[in-house]
């Protein structure tokens, strides 16, 4: 939008295994973003949960189709002991050339315990470099997410998980209160004026606009944010500046 810069923090590209909505490539995704006036997006591969490690190569490949530099990719991590990914220095060292800006994990689908034993090496390196970690693979298992945050309190992370449409304030707020690096993304958080409540209580810099495309469209959350009741400055932070700052803050 000309009057508001939107940077989508929750967006997927590629063709889902079981069909449904999708943007197969960068051109299709960018055209959807244009329809709604979303400038940039942080993009995961849609089959990351089931197509690791192909998905990491695939998202990098698909981003080559974006010649306007509007898309930033996300790579998925796995426990280091099976050597499925390069060592941390090499792994994070290759982010820039592949236009990757953040990481994610799917402990439930990929069947491991997300703790220091499995992920310590990689996540300590991520925390040190301030690489944002998307939290979208805990399948609604709050106690596992709570344990994870206890193990890695220093992470810069963004909670982008959609588990139904009922506002999860009782679970989200304790995390926002206790972990300063914990950020909350707004897709599917449909609580009336709830975005403003969270921003006022925990700081607008902790809240990020996201669409959860392709399951959701981009537009519904845009109007919700614009008329959240927050000041124009705070709306602008949530719409795009916060994510831009987080990605710029990463030492890659």
């Amino acid at each position: 939008m000309e009057d508001l810069f939107f940077f989508d923090s929750n967006c997927s590209i590629g063709m889902p295994m079981n069909g449904g909505n999708y943007a197969a490539d960068a051109a299709a995704l960018l055209s959807e973003m244009d329809y709604s006036g979303v400038e940039k997006a942080l993009v995961r591969y849609i089959n990351t949960d089931i197509a690791i490690p192909y998905s990491n190569a695939m998202v990098a490949e698909l981003l080559k189709g974006d010649t306007q530099d509007r898309l930033t990719g996300v790579w998925t991590i796995l426990p280091s002991q099976c050597h499925e990914l390069p060592e941390p220095d090499e792994f994070f060292g290759s982010f820039k050339e592949n236009r990757i800006g953040a990481i994610t994990l799917y402990p439930v689908e990929h069947r491991y315990v997300p703790c220091r034993l499995t992920l310590g090496k990689l996540l300590d390196a991520a925390a040190e470099r301030k690489v944002p970690v998307l939290l979208n693979g805990f399948a609604g298992k709050w106690s596992e997410l709570y344990n994870f945050m206890k193990e890695f309190p220093e992470l810069t992370c963004i909670y982008v998980e959609r588990c139904g449409k009922w506002g999860s304030d009782r679970n989200i707020r304790p995390l926002l209160e206790n972990y300063s690096g914990f950020h909350f993304e707004t897709a599917g958080y449909w609580v009336p004026e709830g975005i403003a409540d969270l921003a006022n209580e925990y700081g607008a810099e902790r809240i990020l606009y996201g669409s959860n495309f392709p399951q959701y469209n981009h537009g519904n959350g845009m109007l919700q944010l614009k008329y959240s009741g927050l000041s124009a400055e705070k709306v602008a932070l949530i719409a795009g500046k916060n994510l831009e700052n987080l990605l710029k803050g990463a030492q890659l």
Binding site: W190, V191, G219, N220, L223, Q224, Y227, S228
Partner: peptide
């Protein structure tokens, strides 16, 4: 659910 979200 928020009215602006749904109208949006």
């Amino acid at each position: 659910f928020d009215e602006f979200q749904a109208i949006g």
